[in-house]
Design a protein around this nucleic acid. Structure first.
Lengths: 127, 127
DNA sequence: TGGGGTACTTACCAAAAGGTGAGTGAGGAG
DNA sequence: CTCCTCACTCACCTTTTGGTAAGTACCCCA
């Protein structure tokens, strides 16, 4: 009961998936954890320029609740906490692959169009 | 200039893509338009139970700006406006496919776990 | 003794997102 | 004559989201 979805009900799978990745930094957290495998709190913070500590912990807790990340606490001093992706989290990242590619494509296209516009503005139309 | 991205800059493609689909109803709008091909405003409203007219127009305008949907206005009375996906929008939907599948999987798993929990609660442990 | 690092939590605030209810203006149904 | 439909727009409000700054408790380094 404590682990059920935070919102819903969902109409389709997209709904359910978007709910889990929506959050200013979640995409980047996923990407960072997938890239490095294991990361400590401060490493993540440094890897996400501009994130506040509050949001980082909040997002990590939610993703833990959602079964995406694993949190390992070592009872040392100074404290050490390591975050990594669960199997479920890794499968989410795989499912996000095509979307990421689409986004990259879009970014490239945007820049291309801007360049074209600049050229069109600079060059007088051939008469 | 008027058509550049609404936010950014983006760190990776996921970022850019999520920006375009984040919005309470955008996933459903995409799904509805992909399903039916062409939909009128009122049809979309009826297809998205609970959406407010304000949010529906707002989301449609943003998606139009982002080059995902095409808006065709017929100068008739009563007014008629038809929405459909652009090529870009259809490619986004394709890229969302795996994510949607992941989400469905997650929903099914969730229900399965609930059922397992219920069973575990109902059945006394074999001693 | 003072500063930095570890991984947080808490209170307070600002901005963004989203909902509500009204109004538009013409046509068609009752 | 009144209400409903179409596709919106607008003003106002609430909810959600995210940021800021401080505090915690202990350690290491100079």
């Amino acid at each position: 009961m404590t682990k059920s979805a935070r919102s819903g009900p969902y109409i389709c799978g997209i709904d359910a998936a978007l709910d889990v990745v929506s959050g200013k930094w979640k995409g980047l957290i996923l990407w960072e954890l997938d890239n490095y495998g294991v990361r400590r709190f401060a490493e993540l913070r440094r890897g996400l320029p501009g994130v506040s500590e509050k949001m980082l912990t909040q997002h990590l807790r939610e993703m833990e609740q959602d079964g995406l990340v694993h949190r390992e606490v070592y009872a040392e001093v100074p404290p050490r906490v390591e975050y990594s992706l669960t199997e479920h989290g890794r499968s989410l990242n795989a499912a996000l692959g095509p979307l990421g590619a689409w986004g990259m494509d879009r970014l490239v296209r945007e820049r291309t169009e801007l360049v074209e516009h600049r050229d069109a503005d600079l060059l007088p139309r051939p008469s």
